[in-house]
Amino acid sequence: MSLLQLKRITKNFGGLCAVSGISCNLENGSVTGLIGPNGAGKTTVFNLITGIYRPDEGEILFDGHSLLKLRTHQIVARGIARTFQTIRLFQNLSVLENVLAGCHCRMSSGVLGSMLHLPGQRREERKALGKALEALSLVGLRSQAEQLSKNLSYGNQRLIEIARALATEPRVLILDEPAGGMNEQETLDLITLIGRIRGLGITVLLIEHDMTLVMRVCEHIIVMEYGRKIAEGPPDEIKRDPKVIEAYLGAEDEY
Protein backbone atom coordinates (compact mmCIF):
# COMPACT_ATOMS: atom_id res chain seq x y z
CA MET A 1 0.00 0.00 0.00
CA SER A 2 1.14 3.55 -0.65
CA LEU A 3 2.52 5.45 2.33
CA LEU A 4 0.79 8.71 1.46
CA GLN A 5 -2.36 8.92 -0.65
CA LEU A 6 -4.09 12.05 -1.88
CA LYS A 7 -7.61 11.38 -3.10
CA ARG A 8 -9.25 14.01 -5.29
CA ILE A 9 -8.07 16.93 -3.19
CA THR A 10 -9.66 20.32 -3.95
CA LYS A 11 -8.94 23.67 -2.38
CA ASN A 12 -10.54 26.99 -3.31
CA PHE A 13 -9.49 30.42 -2.10
CA GLY A 14 -12.57 32.55 -2.67
CA GLY A 15 -13.25 32.20 -6.39
CA LEU A 16 -9.78 30.93 -7.16
CA CYS A 17 -9.40 27.20 -7.47
CA ALA A 18 -5.83 26.61 -6.24
CA VAL A 19 -5.94 22.84 -6.29
CA SER A 20 -8.56 20.89 -8.16
CA GLY A 21 -9.10 17.17 -7.84
CA ILE A 22 -5.49 16.13 -7.34
CA SER A 23 -4.90 12.45 -6.67
CA CYS A 24 -1.58 10.74 -6.23
CA ASN A 25 0.15 8.01 -4.30
CA LEU A 26 3.58 8.11 -2.73
CA GLU A 27 5.26 4.72 -2.49
CA ASN A 28 7.25 3.95 0.62
CA GLY A 29 10.92 4.81 0.13
CA SER A 30 10.43 6.67 -3.16
CA VAL A 31 11.53 10.17 -4.22
CA THR A 32 8.72 12.03 -5.94
CA GLY A 33 8.95 15.40 -7.63
CA LEU A 34 6.08 17.85 -7.89
CA ILE A 35 6.72 20.33 -10.69
CA GLY A 36 4.81 22.92 -12.64
CA PRO A 37 4.87 26.60 -13.54
CA ASN A 38 4.61 29.28 -10.86
CA GLY A 39 1.15 29.48 -9.34
CA ALA A 40 0.24 25.94 -10.35
CA GLY A 41 -0.73 25.09 -6.76
CA LYS A 42 2.27 23.01 -5.75
CA THR A 43 2.90 24.70 -2.42
CA THR A 44 -0.83 24.61 -1.69
CA VAL A 45 -0.67 20.82 -2.03
CA PHE A 46 2.15 20.80 0.55
CA ASN A 47 0.16 23.03 2.86
CA LEU A 48 -2.81 20.71 2.53
CA ILE A 49 -0.75 17.64 3.38
CA THR A 50 0.83 19.30 6.40
CA GLY A 51 -2.46 20.60 7.76
CA ILE A 52 -1.84 24.31 7.28
CA TYR A 53 -4.92 24.39 5.05
CA ARG A 54 -7.90 22.05 5.09
CA PRO A 55 -9.03 20.68 1.72
CA ASP A 56 -12.58 21.59 0.65
CA GLU A 57 -13.00 18.13 -0.81
CA GLY A 58 -11.06 14.92 -0.90
CA GLU A 59 -9.13 12.79 1.53
CA ILE A 60 -5.50 12.49 2.56
CA LEU A 61 -4.38 9.15 3.96
CA PHE A 62 -1.05 8.55 5.64
CA ASP A 63 -0.28 4.91 6.30
CA GLY A 64 -4.00 4.24 5.94
CA HIS A 65 -5.13 6.92 8.43
CA SER A 66 -6.80 10.20 7.53
CA LEU A 67 -4.84 13.39 8.26
CA LEU A 68 -7.74 15.76 7.73
CA LYS A 69 -8.70 16.33 11.35
CA LEU A 70 -5.15 16.71 12.62
CA ARG A 71 -3.28 19.93 13.34
CA THR A 72 0.14 20.59 11.86
CA HIS A 73 2.17 19.56 14.90
CA GLN A 74 0.18 16.34 15.18
CA ILE A 75 0.90 15.56 11.54
CA VAL A 76 4.60 16.14 12.22
CA ALA A 77 4.39 13.75 15.15
CA ARG A 78 2.80 11.14 12.86
CA GLY A 79 5.89 11.35 10.67
CA ILE A 80 5.49 14.01 7.98
CA ALA A 81 8.06 16.79 8.19
CA ARG A 82 8.57 19.70 5.82
CA THR A 83 10.78 22.61 4.90
CA PHE A 84 9.48 25.97 3.72
CA GLN A 85 9.81 27.69 0.37
CA THR A 86 10.81 30.95 2.02
CA ILE A 87 13.27 29.96 4.70
CA ARG A 88 11.66 29.96 8.12
CA LEU A 89 14.35 29.49 10.71
CA PHE A 90 14.45 30.67 14.31
CA GLN A 91 16.82 33.47 13.35
CA ASN A 92 18.16 34.49 16.74
CA LEU A 93 18.78 30.99 18.00
CA SER A 94 21.79 28.81 17.31
CA VAL A 95 21.88 26.30 14.48
CA LEU A 96 21.81 23.52 17.07
CA GLU A 97 18.71 24.92 18.77
CA ASN A 98 16.96 25.17 15.43
CA VAL A 99 17.54 21.47 14.93
CA LEU A 100 16.57 20.68 18.53
CA ALA A 101 13.14 22.09 17.64
CA GLY A 102 12.71 19.03 15.46
CA CYS A 103 13.51 16.74 18.40
CA HIS A 104 10.74 18.36 20.45
CA CYS A 105 7.94 16.08 19.25
CA ARG A 106 9.95 12.97 20.17
CA MET A 107 10.51 14.21 23.72
CA SER A 108 8.03 14.19 26.55
CA SER A 109 9.30 16.07 29.63
CA GLY A 110 6.78 18.55 30.99
CA VAL A 111 6.99 21.85 32.82
CA LEU A 112 7.87 20.37 36.19
CA GLY A 113 10.50 18.01 34.83
CA SER A 114 11.98 20.91 32.88
CA MET A 115 12.10 23.27 35.84
CA LEU A 116 13.73 20.73 38.11
CA HIS A 117 15.88 18.94 35.52
CA LEU A 118 14.69 15.57 36.79
CA PRO A 119 16.78 12.53 35.78
CA GLY A 120 14.38 11.52 33.00
CA GLN A 121 14.55 15.02 31.56
CA ARG A 122 18.36 14.98 31.56
CA ARG A 123 18.52 11.62 29.86
CA GLU A 124 16.06 12.76 27.22
CA GLU A 125 17.95 16.03 26.72
CA ARG A 126 21.27 14.21 26.15
CA LYS A 127 19.61 11.92 23.66
CA ALA A 128 18.05 14.84 21.79
CA LEU A 129 21.37 16.66 21.67
CA GLY A 130 23.00 13.59 20.14
CA LYS A 131 20.24 13.24 17.60
CA ALA A 132 20.38 16.92 16.63
CA LEU A 133 24.15 16.71 16.11
CA GLU A 134 23.67 13.60 14.03
CA ALA A 135 21.18 15.40 11.80
CA LEU A 136 23.62 18.32 11.49
CA SER A 137 26.44 15.96 10.53
CA LEU A 138 24.23 14.44 7.87
CA VAL A 139 23.69 17.81 6.18
CA GLY A 140 27.33 18.77 6.80
CA LEU A 141 26.82 21.59 9.30
CA ARG A 142 28.11 19.93 12.44
CA SER A 143 30.95 22.45 12.75
CA GLN A 144 28.51 25.40 12.63
CA ALA A 145 26.27 24.07 15.42
CA GLU A 146 26.89 27.00 17.75
CA GLN A 147 26.55 29.80 15.22
CA LEU A 148 23.41 31.91 15.15
CA SER A 149 21.36 30.56 12.28
CA LYS A 150 20.89 34.00 10.71
CA ASN A 151 24.65 34.26 10.23
CA LEU A 152 24.84 31.31 7.85
CA SER A 153 24.68 31.56 4.08
CA TYR A 154 21.39 31.13 2.28
CA GLY A 155 22.25 27.66 1.02
CA ASN A 156 23.30 26.52 4.48
CA GLN A 157 20.12 27.94 5.98
CA ARG A 158 18.19 25.64 3.68
CA LEU A 159 20.27 22.75 4.99
CA ILE A 160 19.43 23.71 8.60
CA GLU A 161 15.77 23.47 7.67
CA ILE A 162 16.35 20.01 6.26
CA ALA A 163 18.25 18.99 9.41
CA ARG A 164 15.42 20.34 11.58
CA ALA A 165 12.89 18.34 9.58
CA LEU A 166 15.05 15.21 9.80
CA ALA A 167 15.31 15.57 13.57
CA THR A 168 11.57 14.93 13.81
CA GLU A 169 12.33 11.36 12.62
CA PRO A 170 9.97 11.64 9.66
CA ARG A 171 8.76 8.86 7.42
CA VAL A 172 7.91 11.39 4.74
CA LEU A 173 10.07 14.45 4.14
CA ILE A 174 8.52 17.25 2.13
CA LEU A 175 10.97 19.73 0.60
CA ASP A 176 9.66 22.97 -0.87
CA GLU A 177 12.21 24.20 -3.40
CA PRO A 178 15.26 22.92 -1.51
CA ALA A 179 17.67 24.17 -4.19
CA GLY A 180 16.19 27.68 -4.33
CA GLY A 181 19.02 30.19 -3.94
CA MET A 182 21.73 27.54 -4.07
CA ASN A 183 24.70 27.71 -6.43
CA GLU A 184 25.67 24.87 -8.73
CA GLN A 185 28.01 23.15 -6.29
CA GLU A 186 25.51 23.39 -3.45
CA THR A 187 22.84 21.91 -5.70
CA LEU A 188 25.10 18.97 -6.54
CA ASP A 189 25.74 18.42 -2.81
CA LEU A 190 21.99 18.59 -2.23
CA ILE A 191 21.46 15.84 -4.81
CA THR A 192 23.88 13.64 -2.86
CA LEU A 193 22.14 14.56 0.39
CA ILE A 194 18.69 13.63 -0.93
CA GLY A 195 20.18 10.30 -2.01
CA ARG A 196 21.49 9.74 1.51
CA ILE A 197 18.13 10.69 3.07
CA ARG A 198 16.49 8.18 0.80
CA GLY A 199 19.07 5.65 1.93
CA LEU A 200 17.73 6.11 5.47
CA GLY A 201 14.40 4.80 4.24
CA ILE A 202 12.68 8.18 4.26
CA THR A 203 10.15 8.88 1.53
CA VAL A 204 10.79 12.24 -0.13
CA LEU A 205 8.36 14.56 -1.88
CA LEU A 206 9.84 17.73 -3.33
CA ILE A 207 8.90 20.81 -5.29
CA GLU A 208 11.75 22.09 -7.42
CA HIS A 209 12.31 24.28 -10.43
CA ASP A 210 15.85 23.07 -11.04
CA MET A 211 15.20 20.40 -13.67
CA THR A 212 18.65 18.78 -13.43
CA LEU A 213 17.99 18.08 -9.76
CA VAL A 214 14.45 16.85 -10.39
CA MET A 215 15.48 14.56 -13.25
CA ARG A 216 18.40 13.15 -11.31
CA VAL A 217 16.83 12.45 -7.91
CA CYS A 218 13.17 11.73 -8.64
CA GLU A 219 11.95 8.38 -9.86
CA HIS A 220 8.41 9.65 -10.13
CA ILE A 221 7.24 13.07 -11.25
CA ILE A 222 3.88 14.76 -10.97
CA VAL A 223 3.26 17.82 -13.14
CA MET A 224 0.69 20.44 -12.15
CA GLU A 225 -0.75 23.38 -14.03
CA TYR A 226 -3.61 25.68 -12.92
CA GLY A 227 -4.31 23.45 -9.93
CA ARG A 228 -4.70 20.29 -11.96
CA LYS A 229 -2.47 17.32 -12.48
CA ILE A 230 -1.56 17.24 -16.16
CA ALA A 231 0.95 14.40 -16.18
CA GLU A 232 2.51 11.79 -13.95
CA GLY A 233 5.23 9.23 -14.52
CA PRO A 234 8.95 8.49 -14.55
CA PRO A 235 11.31 11.34 -15.61
CA ASP A 236 11.90 10.01 -19.14
CA GLU A 237 8.22 9.91 -19.91
CA ILE A 238 7.62 13.34 -18.41
CA LYS A 239 10.37 14.90 -20.52
CA ARG A 240 8.66 13.73 -23.71
CA ASP A 241 5.06 14.40 -22.64
CA PRO A 242 3.60 16.97 -25.05
CA LYS A 243 1.30 18.43 -22.39
CA VAL A 244 4.24 19.11 -20.10
CA ILE A 245 6.24 20.70 -22.88
CA GLU A 246 3.26 22.86 -23.70
CA ALA A 247 2.83 23.93 -20.08
CA TYR A 248 6.46 24.91 -19.78
CA LEU A 249 7.22 26.28 -23.24
CA GLY A 250 3.82 27.24 -24.58
CA ALA A 251 2.00 25.47 -27.41
CA GLU A 252 3.80 25.23 -30.77
CA ASP A 253 0.93 26.77 -32.69
CA GLU A 254 0.47 29.73 -30.35
CA TYR A 255 1.98 32.25 -32.73
Binding site: T50, I52, R71, T72, H73, V76, A77, A81, R82, F84, R88, L89, F90, Q91, N92, L93, A101, G102, H104, C105, R164, A165, T168
Partner: peptide, 10 residues
Amino acid sequence: EDEVAAEGSG
Protein backbone atom coordinates in the same frame (compact mmCIF):
# COMPACT_ATOMS: atom_id res chain seq x y z
CA GLU B 1 10.88 33.54 16.71
CA ASP B 2 8.45 32.07 14.19
CA GLU B 3 5.11 30.58 15.09
CA VAL B 4 4.50 28.91 11.72
CA ALA B 5 7.91 27.26 11.71
CA ALA B 6 7.42 26.15 15.32
CA GLU B 7 4.12 24.46 14.53
CA GLY B 8 5.69 22.98 11.39
CA SER B 9 8.52 21.55 13.48
CA GLY B 10 6.07 19.69 15.65
